[in-house]
């Protein structure tokens, strides 16, 4: 089974997590986004055969959403980290408050 390192809880089985799709930044500000850009955001996916940055949700644990870098050919996970607003340093692996 694929195992993931939750930034809060450490390494757990994937059955504890829910996959949330590839990282796909939402266009902003929403009042000014053109229809075509909304459609691109809603439907189009890179679906890359290689390394992807993606969202996971720790549903049976601490309940946070975090980011994972995974190679979709081999399912090897390079790193997991907690999302930070632009400019803040990303906390890798286990998170300390």
């Amino acid at each position: 089974m694929l195992r993931l390192e939750c930034p809060n809880c450490g390494v757990r089985n994937t059955s504890e997590f829910r996959y949330g799709g590839e990282q796909n930044p939402r266009p902003t500000p929403s009042t000014e986004v053109a229809d075509a850009d909304w459609i691109r955001y809603l439907y189009e996916r890179r679906n890359v055969m290689g390394v992807q940055i993606e969202w996971w949700y720790h549903r049976a644990g601490c309940g946070i959403w975090f980011l994972v870098e995974r190679d979709r050919r081999s399912n090897i996970v390079a790193r997991t980290w907690r999302w930070q607003p632009d400019g803040a340093a990303a906390a890798e692996g286990s998170h300390s408050p």
Binding site: G21, E22, R40, Y43, E44, R45, R46, N47, M49, R72
Partner: peptide, 18 residues
Amino acid sequence: GWASNVAAMVDLPLPLDT
């Protein structure tokens, strides 16, 4: 299964996830 990769050769994003 691999359509996104073939379409990427003509820069065409598809609404697909494999």
